[in-house]
Structures are given as structure tokens and as C-alpha cells.
Measured scan of single mutants.
Amino acid sequence: PEDLERKVRELQKNGVSPEQIEKILRRDGVDEREVQELVKKVS
């Protein structure tokens, strides 16, 4: 979803590592495939 992507970009802009971003997304209940997609987009 659009807002998730925005969140991921925000986190990355704040210097959060892709690994941390993955953890955060998983903790928020984002589905694994979605997590991978989002992280791939920003890394």
C-alpha cells in the first residue's frame, strides 16, 4: 500500500537500516512478501 511505502521511505530517510525496517514491518503485521517488496524498493 501507498502509506506503507511512504513509511518505509521516511524510516530510510531517518537512517534506519533495511534490516530494522524489515523488523518494524513484520512487527506491524505486514505480510512477508510485502515486506520483501518494500525493502527492495528502498535498498
Rank of each mutant, 00 (worst) to 15 (best):
P1L: 13
P1A: 12
P1W: 15
E2C: 13
E2H: 11
D3A: 11
D3K: 05
D3L: 07
D3S: 09
L4R: 04
L4N: 05
L4D: 01
E5G: 04
E5K: 08
R6D: 09
K7A: 05
K7S: 03
K7V: 09
V8I: 10
V8Y: 06
V8K: 01
V8P: 00
R9Q: 06
R9L: 11
R9H: 06
E10N: 08
E10D: 11
E10Y: 10
L11S: 01
L11E: 00
L11M: 10
L11D: 00
L11T: 00
Q12D: 03
Q12K: 12
K13D: 07
N14F: 08
N14Y: 09
G15A: 02
G15D: 01
V16I: 09
V16Y: 15
S17W: 02
S17R: 05
P18W: 15
E19S: 11
E19V: 06
Q20Y: 05
Q20C: 13
I21N: 00
I21D: 00
I21R: 00
E22P: 01
E22D: 02
E22G: 08
E22H: 07
K23P: 00
K23R: 11
I24S: 02
I24W: 05
I24Y: 03
I24V: 04
L25E: 00
L25H: 00
R26I: 14
R26H: 04
D28C: 11
D28I: 14
D28V: 07
G29P: 01
V30T: 03
V30M: 09
E32Y: 06
E32I: 07
E32Q: 06
E32K: 04
E32G: 05
E32N: 04
E32A: 06
R33C: 12
E34Y: 14
E34W: 14
E34M: 15
E34K: 14
V35P: 01
V35Y: 07
V35E: 01
Q36P: 01
Q36D: 05
Q36I: 10
L38D: 01
L38P: 01
L38A: 08
L38T: 04
L38N: 02
V39M: 15
V39S: 03
V39W: 05
K40T: 08
K40S: 11
K40E: 09
K40L: 11
K40C: 09
K40D: 08
K40R: 11
K41L: 14
K41D: 04
K41A: 07
K41I: 10
V42T: 07
V42I: 15
S43A: 12
S43L: 15
S43I: 15
S43P: 05
